[in-house]
Nucleic acid binder design. Structure first.
Lengths: 214, 214
DNA sequence: GCAATAATAAAACGAACGTTCAATTAATTC
DNA sequence: GAATTAATTGAACGTTCGTTTTATTATTGC
């Protein structure tokens, strides 16, 4: 046999991406075979090579688009002239919303870096660093204006990102907490962590979301 | 050839464990081949099977002993009748010290869970849950006595553990910060995160370690 | 120093891997 | 409706994988 009825390149490529994200997140990149991926898509292994020249290029594409999407989401959300507390709040909301929506893709981007060639690894890390830099800038501004009280900006930024991204490890959409509740609690923890001053407009905003649970 | 001069079972097994932890941490469990591991140890692949019946059993042994070691370290360190702030402080110190000392083993225990069979996965997760339970108990006691102000104990515990364990992702022993400085900053962030009251003996204790950097 | 045992080497097993190639059919273009 | 292009199959390639088997040598106990 050969070309099958109703076959469509775009649909097949989308199906490959989706199946690959799920399989790699569940089993790991090395553990997923191209034959297994093909079976999940409902196609022969050779067909995959029409869309991605190698297995690693497929992984790289998934990671790159995930990181680019994260940066773009932040650029659309970022408040222009807001004060540090509002900007930090927006950063946290965007980060958590984006990662909860894309749990599997995040898992892939965080866990499979070692399977990339050095050049591709550098590419992904550059995207990640640019995104983290935005957080450090917010923390620095907040420290300068006195809105935050931070010991070490770089270390605090890493701690915050680890804490927020960790959501995907344990969060399940159908369990005890809703996304809104989780986000509110993480916002509250973040503001405490950076020693945000408890006065001004932002403070009321935070508390209104933070006291949902005891 | 066969048995080599100076060969010794105990030394070989220790060399296998150490090489395996490093290789798996660097490349991942699936990406490490038994032949590569054997070459690192300076032995033929078949010799590995004298010490570990399968590759997965080797992985499981490494993980189990790491998790057991973490629990034992905490049991030795845990202050008996101390107040919640002191106990939380001890927990953070122990966690960070243990993980920084065993960066590679921690990486393995955190990243390779999906390569375990269901029964072995359950075993490891039980050890991990028991350890995390200790933190939740401290947070609960602190909330009850009013020492802490926490929105959601389970969520805060997960956030703290993600934050602390994240140290191994970026910390390099020979760089900008010493272990003591990192620990102090994480202690400070932890106490803020749980809303620790800024009065009593513990408060002085925290600040004395936390203000090393700006 | 001789038997027993511990530790390893060397070779081989079948299975699975990523990838390539030629053939074949569906959809599109004119 | 013929020619062209897009999409896929099925078989095969050489390599590597985890593991087993058998033989061989070093060490230990008596």
């Amino acid at each position: 046999m050969a070309r099958t009825t109703g076959s469509d390149g775009e649909r097949t490529e989308a199906a490959i991406r989706e199946a690959a994200v799920n399989l790699i997140a569940r089993q790991g990149y090395e553990a997923m075979s191209m034959r297994q991926l093909a079976a999940e898509v409902g196609v022969q292994a050779a067909a995959l090579y029409r869309y991605f020249p190698t297995k690693e290029e497929l992984l790289f594409t998934l990671m790159r688009e995930h990181m680019e999407g994260l940066g773009e989401a932040w650029e659309k959300t970022r408040p222009a002239g807001a004060d540090p507390s509002q900007r930090l709040s927006a950063y946290v909301r965007n980060h958590i919303a984006f990662h909860i929506e894309r749990r599997h893709a995040t898992h892939v981007s965080n866990m499979e870096l070692r399977s990339l060639s050095p050049e591709r690894l550098t590419h992904i890390l550059r995207l990640r660093t640019a995104y983290e830099k935005e957080l450090r800038a917010i923390l620095r501004d907040g420290t300068d204006t006195g809105a935050f009280s931070i010991d070490d900006i770089g270390l605090t930024a890493m701690a915050l990102i680890q804490m927020m991204t960790g959501v995907i490890v344990w969060f399940r959409p159908d369990e005890r907490l809703s996304i809104a509740e989780v986000t509110a609690t993480y916002l509250s923890m973040t503001m405490r962590l950076v020693g945000a001053r408890h006065d001004g407009a932002e403070e009321r905003h935070v508390h209104e979301h933070a006291q949902l649970r005891a």
